[in-house]
Nucleic acid binder design. Sequence first.
DNA 1: GTCTATACTTGGATAGAC
DNA 2: GTCTATCCAAGTATAGAC
Lengths: 197, 197
Amino acid sequence: MPNQPHRTRAALVQAALDTLKTEGFSGTTARAIAGRAGVNQALVFYHFGGVESLLLAALDATAAARLERYRTAMAAATDTAERIATARRLYREDVEGGHVTVISELLAASLARPQLRAELLTRMAPWIELVAAVLDDVAGDSPLSETIPLADVASALVALYLGLNLLSRLDPANAQAESLFDLMERVAPLLDGPSTS
Amino acid sequence: MPNQPHRTRAALVQAALDTLKTEGFSGTTARAIAGRAGVNQALVFYHFGGVESLLLAALDATAAARLERYRTAMAAATDTAERIATARRLYREDVEGGHVTVISELLAASLARPQLRAELLTRMAPWIELVAAVLDDVAGDSPLSETIPLADVASALVALYLGLNLLSRLDPANAQAESLFDLMERVAPLLDGPSTS
DNA sequence: GTCTATACTTGGATAGAC
DNA sequence: GTCTATCCAAGTATAGAC
């Protein structure tokens, strides 16, 4: 009884994500993924050609959904305070859902894998663009947008996001990120205030 | 001709660092380390009890030297501009020398290793304290120190540092970090200016 | 076209030789 | 105290059964 191919593929993609989130990159082997998916280990190679390709397919699947979620949530926010509150909500979702963990583990593993590194480079771009677009909205017509290179700040914010997620492993309560959002919420009115004429 | 034990141990520690920097965590096996050190693979277990313990010993060795370097370099800086210039210099050293890579790889791997996670938690504390101390000097007698929780900002800066290093793998030129330091140098006078009465 | 069985390689760890 | 020989577990990948 041959299984429907797309079902096996989907199960492997989901299992790959779950394994990466709970076992880390070094624990994400063809056997571990297949075991979680309930299929034979060799199917990883048949359907995806190898573990690395499967992981990239899994990243693409989760990143597309996540990007869409970010875009709609951020579009609904109209001022800086709301954008920060939204960012906090999204950050919590990411930590709980392990969405950022997937990219962190792959980035860490890309050190010794030039191919993986190249693939990840392409896939980081839309995130940095998304943050840059939000920053552009925040800066709005204020003089900030002229004097500060938004693209660089966007990269830095993405780096901060990754770093916070990495550090959050050591502290399950994740107090740093929460109090950082508190701080940003206190600073937010200073950004909106002057430009609201 | 029995080797002096401390020579073998030192060779393993150095080889462990080099392997972690070039092969990443998943490539840092007892065999890879021992091969690089030019000793038998079983000595990793004899001298350190296992790969993970060796890696922690290696981290301790490099972190102690690195912390000392940071402390003396930062102590020599007297105003905010100098501190930022020093931070830029230290950051470049870290990227080139792979010092942060060691901790990034271990943090990424700690996801599925509770013991490693606990050990790393202890070892991150002095770095956050160091940054907090520098921030305290920067804030000085300005009102900033009252309104902004320095400990949280210190954690965030450490996270940013880790994240920048992680992203720098994708872009060898590492333009983000450099232009971020540019930005900070332009903002620095605003911090020093008002409080210099 | 899909999957199973199996071959081969690499890694962790230790018993015992020197 | 140091290292070799060796075992066992786990990983990748493919040849061939269905």
